[in-house]
């Protein structure tokens, strides 16, 4: 039983529209798994289902063997799964440092504590400071997150996601909208911060996907049409037809 994440016959409909149509997937612990697919295929919806933002219509989601389908996002997060968002989703009025420190609080056991001084929490400070260093935002420590540049906000989005030290990290298009150098930096960052963790990532940049992923799932119209190593996916005719060819034109 080494699957960090396993999905069995997952369905999601909005009204009459089926978006996820019988999707099954296993992601092993420690694996870097990429999900690719055309726009509107249901990749973000799948992330919302796994992370608890949306409830599945039917099917099963297990995190480290435990059923998490239908749980609240904070309950799932407390069980060791953290995610980022395609559209940056941080605390705009809090400083960079506060964003990271807040994101670390629960996992460090400080929970709803209204009896400890936050400035006195060395573990939270150390975590926030080392993260700030790793995502390269130390110079922006006290800037409100809302005034950061796009690339800086994307880096902070990743920082907030990994601050709780979850075992399973899910990143939704972490490099979208970045230029080449920014993308390179982001990939190096992702590689570094997900060391020893399970990573599930939606990504459009094929260079990033083929460089980073151990395995790739191709999601088309709510179903996984192929799931294999990067080399085999590249040679898969169905994938070519459904997706890569499309991306290439």
């Amino acid at each position: 039983m080494s699957a960090a994440l396993s999905l069995v016959d997952l369905h999601k409909s909005f009204g009459l529209t089926q978006i996820i149509r019988g999707l099954s997937l296993e992601v092993a612990a420690g694996e870097r798994h990429a999900i690719i697919g055309p726009n509107g295929a249901g990749k973000s919806t799948l992330f919302h289902l796994i992370s608890g933002r949306l409830k599945p219509t039917s099917g099963e989601i297990r995190l480290n063997g435990e059923r998490i389908g239908g749980l609240r996002p904070y309950e799932i997060n407390r069980r060791g799964l953290a995610r980022s968002f395609q559209v940056t989703n941080i605390f705009p009025k809090l400083s960079v440092y506060e964003n990271l420190r807040c994101a670390a609080l629960w996992s460090l056991g400080h929970k709803y504590s209204f009896w400890t001084r936050i400035e006195g929490l060395r573990d939270a400070r150390a975590r926030a400071e080392s993260l700030m260093e790793r995502i390269g935002l130390t110079a922006r420590r006290d800037a409100p997150a809302g005034v950061l540049s796009y690339a800086e906000q994307r880096a902070l989005e990743i920082g907030v996601t990994i601050a709780g030290d979850a075992d399973v990290i899910m990143l939704d298009e972490p490099t979208a909208g970045m230029n080449n150098t920014e993308t390179e930096q982001a990939v190096a960052l992702i590689r570094k911060v997900t060391e020893g963790k399970t990573l599930v990532m939606v990504e459009h940049d094929m260079g990033v996907v083929f460089g980073l992923a151990d395995r790739i799932s191709v999601l088309v119209y709510g179903q996984i049409i192929a799931c294999d190593t990067p080399a085999r996916i590249r040679e898969n005719d169905a994938v070519r037809e459904a997706y890569l060819g499309q991306a290439g034109h």
Partner: peptide, 14 residues
């Protein structure tokens, strides 16, 4: 303060 700024994201950090 965090939940004032962005209640949704607060849910995803526990």
């Amino acid at each position: 303060n965090a939940v004032r700024d962005n209640p949704e994201r607060a849910e995803f950090i526990g």
